[in-house]
Structures are given as structure tokens and as C-alpha cells.
Design a protein around this nucleic acid. Structure first.
Lengths: 193, 193, 193, 193
DNA sequence: CATGAATGAGGTTTCATTCAT
DNA sequence: TATGAATGAAACCTCATTCAT
């Protein structure tokens, strides 16, 4: 609430995001988070009812950044080379994703996390997750109206497939190989035009 | 050692796989695994040096099944419609993936698991993980030689992208939408031919 | 210091008494007390050196009320039927006791509370606790002088036994049965006259 | 289950009983109990699901001892001087009570303890608590049939009042005065005969 | 005087692992 | 070989108390 309080809360969220990225959800103990944020463990519980709440707040915050960035995309339809715009978009998206990914993975890996309570908060997070494909699909539809994408293509499905491929490449061990966002775009684009 | 021992070992691996699928990696405590396998906790350590080893053995075993299935793929080059063969392949692959997925997720979500020691065991697991894309790439290359795929396409990269998209669709919340393996194949294939 | 300060102090004491009655001594955390009193946690420490002091103040205050009521008792000697006066007295006493009881129980249940330091405060509290039996004993002695109680009876001991029985009936699980203050009086009185 | 296991369980229960008597329920931390029993903290949870369960087991065990002792009482009707038998009985009872008392006090002082779950176990404990008054009442009734107690007296109520007074004298600060079990018996008996 | 954020010791509980039987 | 009791480190969380505002 106070200036000091808000600052602490922000530090906690930031510490959580970066710790989870480094050591995973279960490596990110309350103690480690408190240390990373430079506060005491008890302080966590003045700002969040429990560890999960902190965790969800971290997801939410990062997602918001992501959503905000994506909202500028549809306006770019027709302004440049399709492949380049997409590649640029996915590149930046993937950079942002690096932050959210570990949090989402933990969510996917631990059934209990997503289930118990916190439905409302998660609702917000899922909505945010729904954001990116939406904006991308809107952009693709705009390009389609401009005649730069084949008319028989479903923009929503393509958007999802693009993001899914990207997501997986960031996670999977197979990704050690040299497949870049540009590769993904190239393969897909040449099937759309 | 052999008769009873092997049976116990198999029961443990099986219990691990199904437990992880049900309750996630952290729900799969040694106690729960022992209970599910119908043995005592101590018995685990007679067959595996620690919990991670059991966990890796479980991955390995499931992967082997997967690898074995995929090895029949390259031989099918030229025998039918490209799209159908691929769709069929991905469909079966995705069914098999259901089992391995939770284990792989835990691996991806918990950096410590993959990192610390056990390089040898992991080597095996990664090799197994590498299997599927290999076979798929080999199949695509064969089709390429037969002229059914554009010559400027890199079969390895395409194989990886295909599998990656599939993987992500199985995990991510975005996957609630109606995107099927067939959709993925369609989008990609029309860009390759 | 005076106007606002005293009011706050009173609110704190009142909040403590009623909270302890509702949720027991350990449910009455400083946070809960502050909330119930409508002040901040820090404010508690502006009025009391620590939690125990607040707690003792609460005991003291309630006891005072009790003591005050009892002081009217000795004057009633000889004014009516002995059994009725006693029954009336115990009835009202037991009603008052409801408030103090939880506080006293906490005291009895937690040896550390009574022991460590605070001898002075406790001295006051114990004096207050000693009050009721004193007045009751004084009343009984008066009746004895009037010849309404057997001369070989020790008024102090009887007073204590009366109060003790009452106290226990209010606490113990055996008290679920139908034993009333009147029953206690009847049994005892018929042994005294 | 095994011999060693049972021994440990017994040690834990014993350690709990004596610790609670010394330092109250909240002073009896799991750590302190484990130390007193000479085992590690974790061991507690192999034998009891949580701290409350251990606590209830301790009550139960001590109550059983008490109940067993009381069952010999009714048989003594008519064998000696009424006052002496009762005094002897209350004396021994009060000695036994010393052990159970702190446990029962904690129960009375902390509403949450008795409430949440464990109803079944508590059922047993309460039944045990009901035991002593029962036996005492049975004894008084027997004496009544022998003509040594006035016929218009209710043995059950008297039994409860006797025990209640005793209980309170063991707890309350007023008990510092010189009121003995014999005093209680004397006052009451002279009203009954 | 009052606030409420921050502290940090300490509580209960979990769990991979060891060891006596 | 198999058992399951025992271990102990560490996790999450609570709460009386202090301190900057």
C-alpha cells in the first residue's frame, strides 16, 4: 500500500520470476525468494497469502507485459514483408516467453498447482495466455484481407500452430539443434502464400 | 536377483510412470511409488541408487517403446499419400506421447533434475528422445529423394518443427482450441510440396 | 494520552476478553486483537509492554467487576433464606465467570504464562482472584454468627469448595449433565446447617 | 507394528504426557517431545498423522488407567467407614488426575483442539471421562441401598459435584490454600448422611 | 500517538534416504 | 532380498515484536 510496501511487492515478484527461470518452481523456495529479494521470509506473507499466490502474481505480471506488446501487432498488417514481420514478431515473442515459460511449465508439470483454489487469479492468467494467439490471428486475418495470405487458410489455427511450435522449441531437449524462429516462419509461410 | 528382482524393478518403473502421469513429479513421492508398486520404500533403493535413477529408468523405458514404433516409419516412404502417412504417424505418436509427456515436463520444469550428475543415464535418455525426430527426418528425406517433397527443404528441421508443434499442443492451455494433428500436418505439408 | 489513549486501551482490553472467549488464548493473536479493536498491531505496544501484559490487564479488569459485585454479599447475611441467597449468589457469579473463565483457563493451561516475570501484575490478578472467596467466606461467617450455620464449620474452606465446584462444572466435559448451581448449593447447605 | 515400533510409540506417548504436565500444551513442541522421547522429529509422523493425534492418544491412554482403577470402587460398598473410603478414593483419584489434568485443560482452553475432526478419538476420550463419575455414582448408590446415605440424595449428582470440586481445587489459584480432599469429603458427607 | 511494513525465530510437517531386523 | 522404522534437513508458514514513516 505504502510506497515502501509496493516496492517490496515488486521486488518479490521480480525475484520469483527470475528464480523460477533459474532453478524451477521447486528450487524457488520461499527462503531463496526472500534472499533474492533482499527481504526476510516473513515479509512474503505480508504481501501474499501463500507461495502459490506469489507465483500466480508473477505469471500475471509477466503475461501482462506480453499481452501489451502483442496488441500493437495487427496494426502492422501490410506495412512490410510478411516473412520479416512474422520473424520479427516471433523473435520478440520468444524473448518474452523465456520469462514466462518456466512458470507455465511448473503449472503444467504439477497438477495440484493449477487445481486447488485460485481459480479467479488463474482465470486472469489464462485470459492473458489467450491474448497472444488472438492478436497474432488478427494480424494474419488482416494480411489475408490484403491478399497476402491464401484465402482458404484459417488464421486462428495457423496462429496457434506457430506459437505452439515456438513454445515447444523453447522447452524441449530436441531444441538443442539449430532450429530458429526464422526457420519456423519460413516453413510455415511458404505453405500459406 | 533375476526372477523376483526383475519383476519388482518392472513394477516400480510402471508405478512411477503412472503415478507421475496422475499426480505430477512431486506428487510421486517414494512412499507413493512404493505403495503403488506394492513393495516397501526400502526396496526402491535395492534397485536404483536414488529417486532420479528410477525416474530416468521410467523415461527410458517409455521412450524405447516410442523409438521402436518409429523405426518402422522410413520404410513406408512412397507407399501411400504423404499427408495421410504423416497424419497417421503423428496421431499414433501423440497417443504414445501422453505417457511420456508428464515425465518430460518434470524434466523441463526442474532444471536440477537434468543438470546434476547422472550424465550417463541422461545420455541414454536424450538419445532416446532424439530417436523419434531422427526416424521422422529419415522418412522425410526418403520422400524427398522420391520427389514428393521440395528439394530445398531441410528434412531434419521440418521433422523437429512437426514434433515440436505436436508437443506444445498437448501441453499448453491454448490447446483447448480445436487444432488437431491433421491441421498441423496440413499447414506444414502444403508448404513443403 | 488521556482522552484518545484511554479509549484505545479500553478497546484493546475489551477485544482481548471477547476474542479469548471465542477462540482461546492462542487464537487471540496480536493481529486478531488489533483487528477486533480496530487499531493497528503496533498500537498495542504503545499501551502494553507485551502481549502478556495486555492479557493480564484483561483478567484484572474482568475480575474487578466480579470483585465489586461480591462486595455487596456480606451485608445480606440474615436478610432471607440461606439457600436462596446462596443459590442467587452462585447463579450470578457463574454468569460473570463465563467471561473470566477462558482467561483463567489459559493461565492454568500454560505454566509459562503465570511463571515468567510479571509477578507484580500477577500479584494484582491473584489478589482479585482471591477476592470472591473472601467475600463469600465473610458472608458465611456472618450467617454463622447469626446461628444459621453449624459452628464447627470453617467458612473459608466451604467458600472455596463452593466456588471450586462451580468453576469445574463450567469447564469440564462432565458438566454436560444436568447439575445446576442450585444442586451444588443444596448438597452443601444440607451438610452445613 | 514391530516390537521396536511399539516401543517408540509408547515412548512418544509417555514423553507427551509428562511434557504437557511440565510446560503445557504449547510448550510441548514436536521438537521437545521428540527430544524427550529420544527420537527424531520425523519419527513422530510415522506413528501419528499429526500432533493432535499424538495428543489425543496420550489423553486416551491416561484415561484408560484411570477408568481401570475406578472400576474396583463399587465393590467396596459397605466394607468400611464411608468417609474413609471416599477420602481414600478421592486421594488416589487426585493423584492420577495430576497426569490427565494438563491435557484436559489444554482441551478446554483451546476451542480449536477439540473441534476440528478427530471426533471419533475424542468420543473415546469423553467416554473415558464419563467413566469415573459413573463408578463413583455406582458406589454411592450401593451405599445408599445399604442405608448409609440418605435416600433422598441423587448419587449421580453428588458424584459429579465431588469430582468437580476436586478437579477445580487441582487447577485454580485459590487452591493454594489448605483445602484437602478430606475437607471436601467431610463437608459433603455430613450433608448426605 | 498511530500506522503497518519488516523481522526472524520457531512451529509443524514432508520426504528422500539409511539401517537394523 | 525385503521390510519398515528411523533419520534429519529443509519446506512452508505464523506471530510477537521492532522500526521507519
Amino acid at each position: 500500500m505504502t510506497a515502501r510496501g509496493d516496492h517490496t511487492k515488486a521486488k518479490l515478484i521480480h525475484a520469483t520470476t527470475s528464480l523460477v527461470a533459474q532453478v524451477g518452481y521447486h528450487g524457488a523456495t520461499t527462503r531463496a525468494i526472500a534472499d533474492a529479494a533482499g527481504v526476510s521470509e516473513g515479509t512474503i506473507y505480508r504481501h501474499f497469502p501463500d507461495k502459490r499466490a506469489l507465483f500466480f502474481a508473477a505469471i500475471l505480471e509477466t503475461q501482462e507485459e506480453l499481452v501489451h506488446w502483442m496488441s500493437s501487432l495487427p496494426g502492422q498488417a501490410g506495412t512490410g514483408d510478411l516473412t520479416e514481420i512474422l520473424a520479427e514478431c516471433l523473435l520478440r515473442l520468444s524473448a518474452l516467453r523465456q520469462t514466462v515459460l518456466p512458470l507455465e511449465l511448473a503449472l503444467a508439470a504439477d497438477p495440484q498447482l493449477a487445481t486447488q483454489g485460485h481459480v479467479i487469479d488463474l482465470g486472469g492468467a489464462v485470459a492473458a495466455l489467450g491474448g497472444p494467439p488472438d492478436q497474432l490471428a488478427r494480424y494474419l486475418a488482416a494480411e489475408q484481407r490484403l491478399g497476402r495470405i491464401r484465402p482458404d487458410v484459417d488464421p486462428v489455427k495457423v496462429a496457434i500452430i506457430l506459437l505452439a511450435a515456438l513454445f515447444a522449441l523453447a522447452v524441449s531437449p530436441i531444441a538443442d539443434s539449430e532450429v530458429t524462429a526464422a526457420d519456423v516462419v519460413k516453413v510455415l509461410v511458404e505453405g500459406i502464400t
